[in-house]
Design a binder for these strands. Structure first.
Length: 763
DNA sequence: CTATCCTCGCTTTTT
DNA sequence: GCGAGGATAG
C-alpha cells in the first residue's frame, strides 16, 4: 500500500520508514529529515499492526520528546505510543519496581544541588579532606562512574588520580546516604534500572516483551548505561531502532560514548543500516565546507552529504584585527541587511564556543539597535523561594528526605540554628534514622537545650499538621504550606523589590500547580507533581517565534537552523578549546562542534577570527584555529575585514603574525574605539531604532541623574543593558534604589544616585 | 544570623 | 571581569 506516509520521501527515507522488524541504524546527516523519518516510521509500524503499547521512543530532552510526541500524534491521532525521555522512562520503572533496588515507591529525585548536599555530608562523615578536590569535582567523578555502570563496591581508584581515591572512599557512603534518604540522583535513575534488569532476568524478559519496539533518538549521545538499558530490553525482541550521527556527537564530556553508534552493527545481528545523506537545509557551498572539515576526523562513519539546492554564496572567512571590530562588523552587517528589508533579525545567529564571549556581540548589537536574545545554559539555577516551598512538599511526600529537612527546618527562621541541626544530624546518624525521626525524639536528645527541643517539637507538629493534607490537590497543599509555615507572611508587607519578586514567583508556582491539578484529574498526586518538577526544566528560553538575533554556544545550536550564521572567535584555545587539546578524542569532538555549527546555516555562513581578543578582562594575541586550515579555501571567500588586513588567500597564513607596531596596542588601558578608524555604522532606519540606539556615545561624561525623577513602572535606559522598566523601588534619598527589568532579559538593581540609568522621555 | 568583603577560578549542559 | 562561596565582622 503506497500510502501517504511515503509521499514526498527520498528513497533512503522510505527504506527507513518501511522497516518494522529487527534492528535498524539510521545514520542521519544534518538536515536530512531525521525526525520526519522517525515519526513516519512509528506511524507505519502502527498501520502494519504493531500495538502502540508495544512501542517506546526515548529521547534525551523533554523538548525533543514533546516535539516527537506531537508529530506522532498528528500522523496517528489516537495512538498511545510512549514517547519519553530516558530519565522519565526510568523514573516510572523505578516507581513500579522500587523494592528491587532498595527504594520505596515514594522516592525523591534529587537535582544536582541536592545531590551535592548529600555528597558534602558524606565527605564529612567519612572525614575526607577536600583540600585537593572540590566536592563538585568529586561529584563529577561519581557521575562518571555511574554513567559507566560502575557500582560503588566495584569502583577502583586510579593511582595517578587523586580524586579517584577520594571517590573510592566516599562513593559508597554517598550512595548509602542517598538510599537512607529514600532518594536518587539523576544518574541513579538510569543506573539502578540497568542494575535491576541485570539482577532480575524474569523482569527483564517481561519488559523486553512489553517494549517490543524501542526507538532511540540521538543515539550518538548515549552513554554506557543507556546502551545497557536498551540492549537488555532488546534480547528476545531485537526491534531496536536508533537514529543519530556520529559527526554530531558533542557530549562525550558528559559520558556519551561514540562506540555505541559506531559498533551498533556489531552489537546486533542483521542490522539494517540506512544513510540519510541528502541535505534539505544548506547550500552546497556550506555543505562542502562542513564535509571537508569533518573528513579530518578518524572515528566516524563516512557519509557523502549532498543537496539539490543551488550553490548559493561562498562561505566567507573573515579576519579582523580586534574582537571589537569583529563584533562591530557583524552588528553592522546585520543592521544593514535588516534595514534593507532583506532579512529579519530572527534570520541571524551568532555562535561561539564559550558563553563568556557573548558580551562583545551583545554590546555591538545593542549599539546598532538590533533586538537579540541570548540562549544561555547558565541561568538554570532554581529560585530559592521555589526550592524552599517545594522542599516542604518533598518532605511531606518522603519524610526521610534529609536534604529537604535541612533546607526548611529553619525556613522561615524559627530558632533552630546550625548547632541544633547538627545535633539532630548526629543523633540521626547514630540511631540510623532520618532527621525527621530524630526531630521527633528531640525531647530525649541530651545535647539539646530545652529551648531548642521545644522549637524542634513545634516544627514537628507544624509538619504533621501539613501532612494531613497530602492527598488534597497540589495547589491546596502548596497554599497550606505558604500560609501555615508563615513563608508567605515573611515576604508580605515588604517594600524590598527582591521580596516582591519572590512573591510573584510563588504566585506563579501556585498557578502552575493549579494547571497541574487541572491536567491530572485522576493521577494528580503530590508524588507525580514532584516527579514532574524534578525532571522538567522550565527555562526553555529559546523562543524561535521572537524576531531577534540569536546568540548561543555551539552546543546549544545543535538541532537548530538559521538562514544566516556567524561563527566567531575560531581561534586556538577557544575552538579547539585549550582544555580539549590533550587527546585526539577531545580534539575530534571539538571538530564535530564546529561541524555542528557550520551545518546550522541554511544560506549564508561567516567564519571569523580576530588577531587580538579581549577576553576575561585581558587583551590577548590570538592564533587562528587549526580547523581553519582544513577547509576548502579555494572555494571560500577570504575577505580583508579591515583596511589594515592582508587580504589574498595566498598570504593568509601570514595574517596572524603580529606586525611590530601592533604591540603598541597591547595594554591595560585605553578603549579600542579610540584607535580604530571610525567608520560609523549606517544608522538603522526609523522602525529599527530601539532604546539602545538612543544611548549617547560610549564613555561620554554624563551627569548622573537625579534620583527623584524616577518612579515605579517608568521606562529607563542603561548604557550597558539598554531599555528596561522599573519594576519596583525602595530606599530614600541617596540610597533610593530601583529594580529594573531589561527587555534583553536581565533584572538588575541600581542605587539611583550612582547609576547610569536615564529615564526615557515619552516624546 | 546577616551583610559585605575578598578570593579564586574560569568549557560545553540535560535530567 | 565577574560571580559564587567562604571568611569575617557587627
Amino acid at each position: 500500500m503506497a500510502d501517504s506516509l511515503f509521499e514526498g520521501l527520498t528513497e533512503a527515507q522510505r527504506e527507513a520508514v518501511a522497516h518494522v522488524e529487527g534492528p535498524i541504524l539510521v545514520l542521519a546527516g544534518p538536515g536530512s529529515g531525521k525526525t520526519r523519518v522517525v515519526t513516519h516510521r512509528i506511524a507505519h509500524m502502527l498501520r502494519s499492526g504493531v500495538y502502540s503499547s508495544q512501542i517506546v521512543a526515548l529521547t534525551f530532552t523533554n523538548k525533543a520528546a514533546q516535539e516527537m510526541r506531537s508529530r506522532v500524534e498528528r500522523l496517528a491521532p489516537d495512538s498511545t505510543v510512549w514517547v519519553s525521555t530516558f530519565h522519565r522512562f526510568c523514573a516510572r520503572l523505578l516507581r513500579a519496581y522500587s523494592n528491587l533496588v532498595g527504594l520505596e515507591q515514594n522516592y525523591t529525585i534529587y537535582d544536582t544541588s541536592d545531590s551535592l548536599q548529600i555528597l558534602k555530608r558524606a565527605l564529612q562523615s567519612e572525614e575526607i579532606s577536600t583540600s585537593h578536590a572540590t566536592p563538585e569535582k568529586v561529584a563529577k567523578a561519581i557521575s562518571w562512574a555511574k554513567n559507566n555502570m560502575v557500582l560503588p563496591e566495584r569502583y577502583e581508584a586510579n593511582s595517578h588520580n587523586a580524586i579517584s581515591s577520594i571517590v573510592r572512599d566516599v562513593y559508597p557512603e554517598y550512595q548509602r546516604q542517598l538510599r537512607a534518604a529514600n532518594a536518587v540522583d539523576f544518574d541513579d535513575m538510569l543506573m539502578l534500572v540497568a542494575q535491576m534488569l541485570q539482577e532480575n532476568p524474569e523482569l527483564r524478559a517481561a519488559l523486553d516483551e512489553r517494549f517490543r519496539y524501542i526507538l532511540v533518538d540521538e543515539y550518538q549521545d548515549t552513554n554506557l548505561v543507556q546502551y545497557l538499558l536498551v540492549r537488555s530490553l532488546s534480547q528476545q525482541y531485537p526491534n531496536l531502532g536508533v537514529t543519530g550521527d556520529p559527526d554530531q556527537s558533542i557530549y562525550g564530556w558528559r559520558g556519551a560514548n561514540l562506540n555505541n553508534i559506531l559498533d551498533f552493527e556489531k552489537d546486533f545481528n542483521q542490522v539494517k543500516v540506512v544513510r540519510l545523506e541528502q541535505n534539505f537545509r544548506s547550500t552546497p557551498n556550506i555543505l562542502l565546507v562542513a564535509d571537508q572539515l569533518i573528513s579530518h576526523n578518524k572515528r566516524r562513519k563516512k557519509k557523502s552529504l549532498f543537496t539539490d539546492a543551488s550553490p548559493g554564496q561562498p562561505v566567507r572567512m573573515l579576519t579582523y584585527t580586534t574582537s571589537h571590530e569583529e563584533a562591530q562588523a557583524i552588528a553592522t552587517r546585520i543592521a544593514a541587511q535588516v534595514a534593507q528589508g532583506k532579512r529579519r533579525p530572527r534570520d541571524f545567529a551568532i555562535f561561539y564556543r564559550v558563553n563568556a564571549l557573548s558580551r562583545a556581540y551583545e554590546e555591538a548589537l545593542r549599539q546598532q539597535g538590533i533586538p537579540y536574545m541570548i540562549v544561555s545554559g547558565v541561568e538554570f539555577y532554581q529560585r530559592k523561594e521555589i526550592k524552599d516551598v517545594l522542599a516542604y512538599a518533598m518532605l511531606m511526600n518522603n519524610p526521610r528526605d534529609d536534604v529537604a529537612f535541612t533546607r526548611i527546618v529553619n525556613t522561615p527562621t524559627r530558632g533552630i540554628g546550625k548547632s541544633t541541626i547538627l545535633k539532630l544530624q548526629v543523633h540521626a546518624l547514630d540511631q540510623g534514622i532520618s532527621m525527621m525521626e530524630a526531630a521527633r525524639e528531640a525531647g530525649v536528645i541530651e545535647s539539646l537545650s530545652k529551648r531548642a527541643a521545644v522549637a524542634v517539637a513545634k516544627f514537628v507538629s507544624l509538619f504533621d499538621r501539613l501532612s494531613l493534607k497530602i492527598n488534597e490537590p497540589v495547589e491546596d497543599i502548596l497554599g497550606a504550606i505558604l500560609e501555615q509555615t508563615g513563608y508567605r507572611a515573611q515576604y508580605e508587607n515588604s517594600d524590598d523589590d527582591d521580596d516582591v519578586s519572590r512573591l510573584e514567583n510563588i504566585d506563579e508556582l501556585l498557578s502552575a500547580a493549579r494547571e497541574f491539578d487541572f491536567q491530572h484529574p485522576e493521577d494528580g498526586t503530590l508524588e507525580r507533581y514532584l516527579e514532574d518538577k524534578a525532571l522538567v526544566n522550565e527555562t526553555d528560553n529559546f523562543d524561535a517565534d521572537l524576531d531577534r538575533v540569536t546568540l548561543m554556544t555551539l552546543h546549544a545550536a545543535k538541532g537548530l537552523e538559521f538562514p544566516c550564521v556567524f561563527m566567531v572567535a575560531i581561534e586556538e584555545g577557544l575552538l579547539p578549546h585549550e582544555r580539549s587539546k590533550d587527546s585526539d578524542a577531545q580534539l575530534e569532538e571539538e571538530r564535530r562542534l564546529m561541524f555542528v555549527g557550520i551545518t546550522r546555516a541554511q544560506e549564508e555562513l561567516d567564519l571569523s577570527t580576530a588577531n587580538q581578543r579581549d577576553f576575561r578582562g585581558r587583551r590577548m594575541m590570538t592564533v587562528p584555529s587549526t580547523f581553519l586550515f582544513e577547509l576548502p579555501r579555494e572555494e571560500m571567500d577570504f575577505q580583508a575585514a579591515l583596511p589594515r588586513m592582508v587580504s589574498p588567500a595566498s598570504d593568509w597564513e601570514d595574517v596572524h603574525e603580529i606586525p611590530p607596531d601592533d604591540f603598541s596596542q597591547i595594554g591595560e588601558s585605553g578603549d579600542f574605539s579610540d584607535q580604530t578608524p571610525s567608520n560609523p555604522p549606517e544608522p538603522p532606519t526609523k522602525m529599527l531604532i530601539t532604546a539602545a540606539e538612543m544611548v549617547t556615545g560610549p564613555g561620554s561624561a554624563r551627569p548622573k541623574s537625579d534620583p527623584n525623577q524616577f518612579h515605579q513602572s517608568m521606562a529607563v535606559l542603561h548604557p550597558t543593558y539598554g531599555l528596561g522598566k522599573i519594576t519596583s523601588m525602595s530606599g530614600e534619598g541617596a540610597k533610593r534604589t530601583a529594580t529594573v527589568q531589561f527587555v534583553t532579559g536581565p533584572q538588575k538593581k541600581f542605587v539611583l544616585a550612582f547609576s547610569d540609568l536615564r529615564p526615557v522621555s515619552k516624546t
